[in-house]
Design a protein around this nucleic acid. Structure first.
Length: 625
RNA sequence: AUCCCGGUAGCUCAGUUGGAUAGAGCAGCAGAUUUCUAAUCUGCAGGUCGGUGGUUCGAUUCCACCCCGGGAUGCCA
């Protein structure tokens, strides 16, 4: 996964204190041998690979011994002997194991104190307080096309990344790069007008049909075909262009004419065009709401938004002598790369790369983003590589404070059917996103209702509407968690049975853990048991404590790597650790008052961390299920 | 043809500055409940980390070559 800055994983609160202590020990032990270079030695503190090795381990001895020509275990012992009191106070006596690992076990009081310190509304997460800015390109629907599963990913991955940075206190600009301008939409518009369809009462289905029929009527691309042949493009591409060529028709001329009238601002055409957008976006917002995604009209920065910036963009590249004329078109060439970036067609019009260049400039120089994240299909890898390089060449990554903005593509893979081919319905059509979500919600509701029918179930007394709401949350969580829980760059097989099986690494499993805790806390309240001083005694309490303390580092890591699956992995681990604790450590029936109130406190903290992490994935955590 | 991405347990996948015995989930097997929600937990079994070579005290991780799968490849987005 791409990384947008040089920052390595941030250690959690405890690990960074251990790190600081070991650095002091290293300086004390190594200054005779290394002089001032001793302060540069990294103690390499990591979470222990296995609980039997303690909580953390320091791995510096082996590598360092090599450069100093010493025995690693001896070296480790010398550093331990120099440990300052501040470090010794944190843990039990160190153990040296294997070739020279130092095993570290944190004292229970230290864990308890660290948990108490994290018990605040921020949950230990530090905030940038709006001092940093990111733009997130997400959703990217095309006007007149129904949303399908591909848009699911661009939408929820982008929303999660946006939420992640919002949680970290960044200023976040969501950018919905709509396909709402240019020839494709003009073709649809022309097709509708030819068919004399009343655009004022048109439905998305009508638009969808018009879009497809417009595509079928074909685009002619003689210049493109000639160029493709001349430059030795793949047979695939040439065949595609030939097919289009055969379908060349008056439809194309009509579309070009419609586009010209749209561009010149002819009011009737513009009104129709706006209507197309409204109809399309109505369903997009509905779907976004269903998915819990924050996507509204104010986030629209579609192609049409950049229409007046296209000519200046091309001019800038020409003026900077970065663009050259080739077979009538304008291209930007890169050193060491055969493939150029086409920024103007031979007929003088611009194309998607031009818009992307203008958009990148806008995001960095107008919005002031230090980071621009593009949540777009992995097949556009090469395209974005070229666009980003072109933006750097012309210097548009330069920010006002003279730092350099990072442009990062987060490529996501395809959603596949059981046959490992892109997901289709039986009749070969793309699944609409709506159909998919409806199915998942139905499944979620069925499960929740079945559960509520069991006599002692906590949901037994709920109304049908309440159960439906929970079932919807469960169904949506199932789909979203499945999508976000593995490396987004990879394809995955859409398997609704697995997603809503509610066992193992799923959204409902995390929701269930949360609901259990909420149940305990509700009972605790009615019994008058409140949060008290935390005592870490049992191994399951220790495991839970260590897990909770990792939260701030986990989400900072997810942000640094732009990897939503890191959040999901944290959620799953915490739910797991909690369930083990729940099994082994009675909370409300604990041995004494102190134990009960300590465990209620652990439950409370766990519930809040779980809900917080899930909220970054925009997965709701119902109090009962 | 060139470039990009991937190949880890039967299946789906984690594994980021190279570290101890490569981890989960599902499926399989064996257990735990007069229980704070069993949508749970505990244990067992399951691997030449695609292959070969190299660097290293140590490689799933870095390098080279090869095999397999997918994608991209100038006037679509």
């Amino acid at each position: 996964m791409s990384q947008h800055d040089a920052r390595t994983s941030r250690p959690d609160a405890l690990a960074s204190r251990l790190d600081a202590g070991f650095r002091l020990a290293l300086i004390a032990a190594l200054t005779p041998a290394l002089a001032d270079r001793a302060s540069q030695v990294d103690p390499l503190i990591k979470a222990a690979a296995n609980p039997q090795f303690g909580d953390f381990q320091a791995n510096f001895a082996m590598g360092l011994a090599k450069t100093l020509d010493r025995k690693p275990r001896e070296l480790a012992q010398e550093v331990i002997d120099c440990a300052p009191q501040s470090l010794r106070d944190l843990c039990d006596p160190f153990e040296i194991a294997g070739p020279g690992f130092i095993n570290i076990r944190v004292r229970p009081e230290v864990l308890a104190a660290a948990l108490t310190a994290m018990d605040s509304p921020t949950l230990g997460v530090s905030s940038a307080n709006g001092s940093r800015t990111v733009a997130v390109d997400l959703c990217g629907v095309n006007v007149a096309k129904q949303m399908h599963v591909g848009h699911l990913r661009a939408t929820i991955i982008g929303d999660t990344i946006a939420r992640l940075f919002e949680r970290l206190g960044w200023r976040v600009y969501r950018q919905n790069h709509l396909g709402d301008w240019g020839l494709p939409i003009a073709m649809t518009l022309a097709s509708l007008r030819r068919a004399k369809i009343d655009i004022s009462r048109v439905t998305l289905d009508d638009l969808n049909r018009a879009y497809r029929s417009a595509q079928a009527q074909g685009r002619d691309d003689e210049a493109g075909l000639a160029a493709a042949r001349a430059t030795g493009a793949g047979p695939h591409r040439i065949a595609e262009l030939e097919a289009q060529h055969e379908g060349a028709s008056a439809a194309l001329a009509d579309a070009h004419d419609t586009l010209r009238r749209l561009q010149s601002g002819e009011s009737a055409v513009v009104a129709d065009w706006q209507k197309l957008i409204d109809v399309t976006m109505h369903e997009v917002y509905e779907t976004a709401q269903l998915l819990g995604v924050d996507l509204k009209p104010e986030h629209n920065r579609g192609e049409s938004f950049f229409r007046d910036r296209l000519v200046p963009t091309v001019d800038a590249f020409v003026a900077a002598q970065l663009a050259s004329r080739d077979a009538g078109a304008l291209v930007v060439r890169f050193e060491g790369r055969e493939r150029p970036l086409l920024i103007q067609k031979s007929d003088g019009t611009s194309l998607y790369a031009t818009t992307d260049l203008a958009a990148a400039r806008y995001r960095v120089q107008d919005l002031g983003a230090e980071l621009v994240v593009y949540c777009v299909d992995a097949r556009q890898r090469d395209h974005f590589k070229d666009v980003f390089d072109a933006v750097r060449l012309i210097g548009w990554t330069a920010r006002a404070d003279s730092t350099e903005a990072s442009l990062v593509h987060v490529p996501f893979g395809a959603v596949l059917g059981a046959d490992k081919r892109p997901l289709k319905t039986r009749s070969g059509e793309n699944f609409t996103l709506k159909a998919l979500l409806d199915e998942a919600i139905a499944r979620g509701r069925r499960e929740v209702h079945a559960r509520a029918a069991i006599a002692d179930s906590p949901t037994a007394a709920l109304s049908r509407a309440e159960l439906d709401a929970i079932g919807q949350a469960v169904g949506i969580a199932a789909i979203k968690y499945a999508d976000l829980s593995s490396d987004v760059g990879r394809d995955y097989v859409f398997d609704l049975d697995q997603m809503v099986s509610f066992e193992g690494d799923t959204g409902p499993y995390a929701q269930y853990a949360h609901a259990r805790i909420a149940g305990i806390l509700a009972k605790a309240t009615s019994l008058g048991i409140t949060c008290g001083a935390i005592v870490v005694r049992e191994p399951q309490e220790r495991a839970l404590a260590l897990n909770l303390l990792r939260y701030p580092a986990a989400i900072e890591d997810a942000a640094a790597q732009l990897a939503p699956n890191r959040i999901a992995a944290f959620v799953f681990e915490l739910a797991n650790t909690f369930n083990a604790f729940y099994q082994a450590c009675p909370v409300l029936r604990g041995a004494d008052d102190a134990t009960r109130s300590s465990r209620v406190h652990l439950c409370d903290l766990t519930r809040r961390v779980l809900a917080d992490a899930l909220s970054i994935l925009a997965i709701t955590a119902p109090p009962r299920m």
